[in-house]
Nucleic acid binder design. Structure first.
Length: 494
RNA sequence: GGCGGCGUAGCCAAGUGGUAAGGCAGAGGUCUGCAAAACCUCUAUUCAGCGGUUCAAAUCCGCUCGCCGCCUCCA
């Protein structure tokens, strides 16, 4: 089945056919660098990172451009507040953004242009629009004339009348139409500026993305992404600018990710309910956050809450718990993955496992081909983990056949991990880390635990179960759970 | 007011015409000295409600109710 994507422009899923066969050109709106990135940025960037990786995995040569908006009113405001040059603010938060994206495990886009590095391209584009009569100068500002662009608002499928019906009336004498937006803004005294045909000023918010995306990807390219909130006005205005300038279709497929809510409320600075990526990653492992973000479809709203994150953490432990068992079973064995179905007949659960293992990548592809359905893809993975646990639980020593199947699975799950960034750690190390993190929050040291376990072991040897249970209860009271097995007693933190 | 989306088990969630994936939580069982882990079984005759189309609907259409987003900076 070919890839299908939900295109905001048409409001439906469409077969994905790139402009140039075999190649995908993709642009995603990055951040305005004036503050720390939050969980909403995490979602948008994780989603498009996975789309980027998936497109490459299915064989496309992908050019992925993600910009930094490094000149903007909000940056200037913050700079004024701190009494520093605007570049100090933008540089600082570009660094922070890069660190956060790295911490989330994202790949670098093909290029990450900055608005201030493309002022000449921006001026050229504004100039073209003025020449074509699509924009007009008003003082030192230049505005885009929305009424002259026939298909304005086609992305949100609204009309200028619709928009104004509920809009606040904000009269700006210099605008010919209230919906006209700034392409170029005159610099007020003390503000950063660049020389232009209209005097000293800076670009408006939307023009940089039209200019930079076309510069790197051409006048018509395949995918343009961003959060749902960018549909209007940002993307609508990008279309207006680009298509009026070139007379061609700007973007073929518009992809928009849903919002992250906090306890069912919209995240916003005024409500004070937003979480930065740094805060979240200090409390949860990066893969836990990714599992949470990918557990719902990228277009759905997603509710960030302690309970939902705790569920993701449990899910992650389940994944690594099983992967660790697999690695144990495979340790020191040379599995012949090429000969899965000859030799002794498989029992029922082994057959089921074989079938699910052999179809795993196909089912992964099928899920991802359906508008990047990561939730379904993850469901398939959990399903097969259950099968594996079942097979491993049936005998203490897995058969050679089972080992082969597991080796096959292990290799495929690594392949999937390369795209979704989940299950890519060394399982024993992950579990160890989780245990360590939790242990740090308890009032008991590892040495004390091990000592108590040893004492319990000797008590059990002499069948002194009273003392043995006493020790176990003591540890349970401290959130330490003991796991007895043939190999001895291990422990984990609740 | 206009435009758009959503409503699937206690919670999260997939499923857009063929008879309800998966996760978390819970109950019973196997195992265990007892537990835990793991496994097995169970937990939605039903998809907000009502009506319609169809051999067949959670899926399509209409209406009602409820929630949310956008229309202003925002991932």
């Amino acid at each position: 089945m070919p890839l299908r994507v939900f295109n905001t422009l048409s409001g439906r899923k469409e077969a994905f056919v790139p402009v140039t066969p075999g190649k995908v050109k993709m642009y995603v709106c990055g951040v305005t660098v004036y503050d720390h990135t939050h969980i909403g940025h995490a979602r948008a960037n994780v989603v498009f990172d996975i789309i980027f990786r998936y497109l490459q995995w299915i064989g496309y040569e992908v050019t992925y451009v993600r910009n930094y908006t490094d000149i903007d009113d909000k940056i200037i405001n913050r700079a004024n507040k701190e009494g520093v040059p605007f570049r100090e603010i933008s540089e600082r938060f570009i660094r922070e953004f890069d660190l956060d994206m790295k911490a989330l495990g994202l790949e670098l886009p093909t290029c990450q242009p900055r608005a201030t590095e493309h002022i000449a391209d921006i001026i050229r584009l504004v100039d073209t629009l003025v020449e074509k009569g699509m924009a007009y100068q008003a003082g030192g500002d230049v505005y885009y004339c929305v009424e002259k662009f026939d298909s304005y608002l086609k992305l949100s499928r609204r009309t200028l009348e619709d928009m104004q019906a509920g809009a606040r009336i904000e009269v700006d004498e210099r605008k010919r139409h209230p919906m006209d937006f700034a392409l170029w803004k005159e610099a007020k005294p003390g503000e950063p500026f660049w020389e232009s045909p209209w005097g000293k000023g800076r670009p408006g918010w939307h023009i940089e993305c039209s200019a930079m995306s076309m510069k790197f990807l051409g006048e018509t390219f395949d995918i343009h992404g961003g959060g749902k909130d960018l549909v209007f006005p940002h993307h609508e205005n990008e279309i207006a600018q680009a298509e009026a300038a070139t007379g061609r279709q700007f973007v073929k497929y518009w992809l928009h990710n849903g919002f992250v809510n906090i306890n069912s409320e919209k995240m916003s600075k005024s409500l004070g309910n937003f979480f930065t990526i740094k805060e979240v990653l200090s409390r949860y492992d990066c893969e836990v956050l990714r599992l949470f973000l990918l557990s719902a479809h990228y277009r759905s709203p997603l509710d960030f809450s302690d309970q939902n994150m705790a569920e993701a953490a449990s899910g992650m432990e389940r994944i690594y718990g099983t992967l660790a068992r697999i690695d144990e079973a495979l340790a020191g064995k040379q599995a012949e993955t090429s000969s899965l179905s000859d030799g002794n007949p498989l029992n029922e659960s082994e057959s089921e496992l074989l079938e699910k293992t052999e179809s795993l990548l196909d089912r992964f592809k099928e899920a991802m081909d359906d508008d990047f359905n990561t939730a379904l893809a993850l469901g398939n993975v959990f399903d097969i983990l259950r099968c594996i646990n079942k097979v491993l639980g049936e005998s203490s020593v897995p058969s050679e056949k089972t080992v082969s199947i597991l080796a096959h699975f292990r290799s495929d799950i690594r392949e999937i991990g390369k795209i979704i960034g989940i299950g890519i750690s060394v399982p024993s190390a992950y579990l160890e880390k989780i245990r360590g993190d939790r242990l740090n929050r308890l009032e008991i040291t590892e040495e004390e635990i091990i000592k108590l376990i040893e004492e319990r072991a000797s008590a059990r040897k002499t069948r002194d179960f009273r003392r043995s249970d006493e020790i176990r209860d003591l540890l349970i009271a401290k959130n330490i759970i003991l796991l007895d097995s043939a190999q001895g007693t291990s422990w984990k933190v609740k």
